[in-house]
């Protein structure tokens, strides 16, 4: 079947099977490999994307269900060479180790800051509960999100 949806602001038409997952269509048909496959069962958040502006797990969404909707992946955040504020904060705080969990964390953080521009540390921790970092760099991830929110001042 054919589906049509907006991916990072661009209309896409793709031929998909009924049992294909959004995650696989993104990675294998549209070559957007920023979004990662971790557990496949909703536990790790590596596959998080924004669907109509809200964070969902692309490993548990049928591609067919995305017809007519809007998807934002990690590739859609930067404006040209200019990184998004959250991406910059992750770089500056050293919140990236192997980087596998990073796209999922950044998308989730982006969603948090759109909902709540001034989160407390507790609110940050609660919101990212569904994202796991196997390198366990949680301290710096939390710092990066607070920094992007302007709660932690920019170090010169």
């Amino acid at each position: 079947m054919e589906i049509e949806f907006t991916l990072n602001g661009v209309r896409k038409r793709v031929q998909v099977e009924p049992n294909e997952l959004l995650l696989n269509v993104l990675r294998e048909k549209l070559y957007m490999t920023g979004t990662k496959y971790g557990c496949g069962i909703g536990e790790c958040g590596a596959c998080t994307v924004l669907l109509d502006g809200e964070p969902v797990l692309s490993c548990l969404v049928l591609a067919a269900d995305v017809d007519g909707r809007e998807v934002t992946t990690i590739e859609g955040l930067a404006r040209g060479e200019e990184l998004d504020e959250v991406q910059k904060a992750f770089v500056e705080e050293g919140a990236v180790q192997c980087g596998f969990c990073t796209p999922g964390f950044i998308i989730t953080a982006k969603s948090l800051l759109m909902e709540n521009p001034n989160p407390s540390e507790e609110e940050v921790r609660e919101y990212i509960k569904g994202n796991l970092c196997r390198c366990t760099g949680y301290m710096n991830i939390v710092k990066a999100i607070l920094r992007a929110a302007g709660v932690i001042p920019q170090t010169p």
Binding site: M1, N19, L21, N24, Y37, G40, A64, D65, D67
Partner: peptide, 12 residues
């Protein structure tokens, strides 16, 4: 867990 190993007809 990467795939849904079941063939089905999709209705919406």
């Amino acid at each position: 867990t990467h795939i849904v190993p079941v063939r089905f007809t999709y209705h919406s």
